[in-house]
Design a protein around this nucleic acid. Structure first.
Length: 737
RNA sequence: GCGGGUGUGGCGAAAUUGGUAGACGCGCUAGACUUAGGAUCUAGUGCCGAGAGGCUUGGGGGUUCGAGUCCCUCCACCCGCACCA
């Protein structure tokens, strides 16, 4: 069949590897090309890939992306006979069979198989010319009404009317049947096309009385539709489907956008297929005794110019004996990524990918953390693959990934110099962002020229700016601006003398990208602050699923925290200060509160709040001068998933022979969490005016009396009548006036 | 156009079940120590106001003793899909 061929990459690609007619990797043009290829029948699992989503804990957005990709629609096939060419008929797909009486013409994709046969002699030149137009290969986002008449007519299956058959760009060959019955009375695109080519329009749905109902909404009453007249749309759909099926004019059908996935690549690096062809070209599987089938050694990995795999050049391998040839294509990357996690369950097994026992024990992947960019590629194929293995009885679950969390992207700050679009005396005129704001210069009058963040002083700070060195570096980097003037608060500066210029940059949150020259290399951060600090800061930035900007300055907060933590163990003379003395009550209270809070936070992936609790805990412990091992040991254990290196070091210094990472997470003791008194906020009409601390178990009556006696409250109550007093146990007091 | 999501201080954010909005951190301000400070420590820091006090979770409305949280409505931004019949 037809496949996505990318000349530049020298291989075919799966649909999810093609975006807007270009290869996702490299952005090279991709064309349709007829080739003999292996493909995975993912479509056979479309329905189960959809229904399975109800059983897994994935984000709604990710599920939606997969649902859109599968693209299920329920409708019908309807046959239209071609007038004068019996028994030729055109099968169309529609989700709105109820609108059949409004169908005034048919439209085929221009590469539909019947086009040549339907084209009349006098239309041949028009049709071939139109078909030959390099289809603005998926004219991105643009609707078009281009098309031509084939010269033929179809017979309306119910009314028997003759309706013209057209070809047009807006009907796609690879969706449905590649042919539609156009209903300009109820479809925007059909209507636009009908208007452009003066084709008749019949209203078939009365929407009067319906407010602003969108044209696609399945609402309204049928009109001009013979026996359907007067029915509501939903009822009409059901009725006409029964009618079509009963009279053998059509068939209920569900179609999907999802297509079978191409599984052959003309590359060296990939699993070779355990397949060979005999002299008649028939396909055979390799015997199990011949497995594993491994890639042969090769010196030159480039594809051969004829579009065949590099393996095809290796004659003795490709044709091991007379009349026998091997499959020389290899499998795509997603072959391995669809099941590697199963192998982890039993990595040394020589007989199977994993033993029954291992599979029974491990089952599936409990938690998968990954980027949303895999939504329609890897994550879809892995689910398909897993269901297939399940059907064969090789895995115990239908879904591979029970719970999935999409981590957000770390963004960067884009630092730009503002350039006035109007040049000053013919020279480029840059203006400090403070000045531009003060003068209220509109955005349209300015271009933002991204500047490399190494040139910016106080990068990430609100006052980020360039001084003389930065400006020098900038014009050296962008010589076209050598002559430019830079307007700062205290006047104009120009090369070569930037003097004491302070030129403020515009700072915006955006992607970290080479294009914006704002990529922060983790290696550099780790070099300066250490891996623990880097890791913790990434967790501290915000909720895991949210994209958030990297703020270089903020990392100091975590760095300070780790130094404070260290200072609980070593004083500033680097002397070990941990003692075996028992801790005081307050230390135990904060420790156990921290065990509880961070344990719960970890369970709900709220790492940023767990870290904030660690900070509170360390700050509290530092206020005392006790350095009790009884408190510090569990603290090190709590922190070990967050700062694995520093905690391992401290753990050893605490005299533990085993790794902290094999120790068990501490448990909290409820008795250290119970308070003897409670501080109640006292509100008047829901606004806090005072507070009062009372022993636990104070009866409501007493709470109320005490609250009313507070001086601030007395003041507010003066001359007012109390309507009621609400006391929420252990929470608050609200006096309603 | 359809679908998903997000709007809270100068910034990143917290508030888990309708109950003290702004925890924690950055930044900023003042002070201490210091030859020095881009180190450390202390205090302050939502906004308006001299103060009393008022205002405040994108805007407007509602339910409630009480709303960031629930309901209605509008707006802005981000992401995905997009001629899907």
């Amino acid at each position: 069949g037809y496949v996505n061929w990318c000349e530049a990459l020298g291989t075919v690609l799966a649909n999810d590897e093609v975006k807007d007619g270009l290869s996702e990797r490299g952005g090279f043009p991709v064309v349709q090309r007829e080739m003999m290829q292996w493909s995975l029948r993912v479509t056979a699992y479309a329905e189960r890939l959809l229904s399975g989503m109800n059983t897994i804990q994935w984000s709604e957005s990710l599920k939606t992306i997969q649902r859109n990709w599968i693209g299920r629609s329920e409708g019908a096939y309807i046959d239209f006979n071609v007038a004068g060419q019996y028994p030729v008929s055109i099968k169309v797909f529609t989700t709105r069979p109820d609108t059949i009486f409004g169908s005034t013409f048919l439209v085929l994709a221009k590469d539909h198989d019947l086009v040549a046969q339907l084209t009349s002699a006098d239309q041949v030149s028009a049709v071939t010319q139109f078909a030959a137009q390099v289809a603005p290969s998926k004219t991105i986002g643009q609707k078009t009404t281009e098309g031509v008449w084939t010269g033929s007519y179809a017979t309306h299956p119910i009314t028997g009317d003759k309706i013209p058959i057209w070809i047009a760009d807006y009907v796609l060959k690879d969706y449905g049947t590649g042919a539609i019955m156009a209903v300009p009375g109820d479809d925007e695109r059909d209507l636009a096309f009908a208007k452009a080519h003066q084709l008749p329009v019949v209203e078939i749905i009365n929407r009067s009385g319906l407010s602003q109902a969108a044209i696609e909404d399945k609402q309204g009453v049928m009109i001009n539709s013979s026996f359907l007249d007067g029915m509501q749309v939903e009822a009409a759909i059901k009725y006409i489907l029964d009618y079509l099926e009963h009279n053998k004019l059509g068939l209920r059908q569900v179609v999907y956008k999802l297509r079978d996935a191409n599984f052959s690549r003309q590359r060296y690096w990939g699993e070779p297929f355990p397949i060979y062809y005999d002299k008649n070209g028939l396909v055979h599987e390799m015997k199990e005794s011949e497995l594993p089938h491994e890639l042969p050694e090769l010196d030159d990995f480039k594809p051969s110019p004829d579009g065949r795999s590099p393996l095809a050049r290796l004659d003795h391998w490709a044709s091991p004996s007379d009349g026998i040839s091997r499959e020389t294509d290899t499998m795509p990357g997603y072959a391995g990524s669809s099941w590697y996690f199963l192998r982890y369950m039993d990595p040394n097994n020589q007989n199977a990918f994993a033993s029954k026992d291992a599979l029974k024990y491990w089952q599936d992947v409990d938690l998968y953390v990954g980027g949303v960019e895999h939504a329609v590629g890897h994550l879809m194929y892995a689910r398909f693959w897993h269901k297939f293995l399940y059907d064969l009885g090789y895995v115990p679950t239908e879904e591979p990934f029970k719970k999935l969390v999409n981590q957000g992207m770390i963004q960067g700050i884009v630092e730009s110099l503002l350039l006035l679009k109007d040049r000053k005396e013919g020279k480029a005129h840059f203006i400090s962002s403070e000045l531009a704001a003060a003068r209220e210069i509109p955005k349209e009058a300015l271009s933002a020229i991204p500047v490399h963040i190494s040139m910016v002083k106080d990068y990430g700070h609100p006052d980020s700016h360039l001084v003389a060195e930065g400006l020098d570096a900038f014009i050296k980097w962008r010589p076209e601006y050598t002559e430019a003037v830079f307007e700062c608060f205290d006047g104009f500066y120009q090369a070569p003398d930037f003097g004491k210029a302070v030129f403020y940059t515009q700072s915006e949150v955006g992607k970290m990208s080479k294009r914006y020259h704002n990529v922060v290399n983790p290696d550099d951060v780790i070099e300066k602050y250490g891996a623990d600090c880097f890791r913790m800061y990434e967790m501290f930035l915000g909720p895991i699923e949210q994209s958030k900007p990297w703020d270089t300055m903020g990392i100091e907060g975590i760095s300070k925290f780790l130094r404070k933590l260290w200072s609980l163990f070593y004083n500033d003379q680097d002397v070990w200060v941990v003692s075996a003395n028992p801790p005081k009550e307050n230390s135990l209270r904060i420790l156990h509160a921290t065990i509880k809070k961070t344990g719960e936070d970890i369970e709900r992936f709220s790492f940023n709040t767990a870290i904030s609790q660690f900070m509170i805990c360390v700050n509290e412990l530092r206020k005392t001068d006790e350095r009790s091992a009884e408190v510090l040991k569990p603290l090190v254990q709590l922190l070990s998933p967050f700062a694995p290196f520093i905690t391992e070091e401290l753990w050893q210094q605490l005299g533990e022979p085993q790794s902290v990472h094999t120790s068990t997470f501490p448990t909290f003791d409820e008795k250290w969490l119970i308070n003897s008194s409670i501080t109640y906020p006292v509100c008047i009409n829901g606004k806090k005016r005072s507070e009062i601390t009372l022993p636990v178990g104070t009866p409501n009556k007493e709470i109320e009396t005490s609250a009313k006696e507070l001086p601030e409250i007395i003041k507010w109550l003066e001359g007012q009548t109390i309507k009621k007093v609400i006391i929420v146990p252990e929470k608050m007091v609200n006096i309603v006036l």
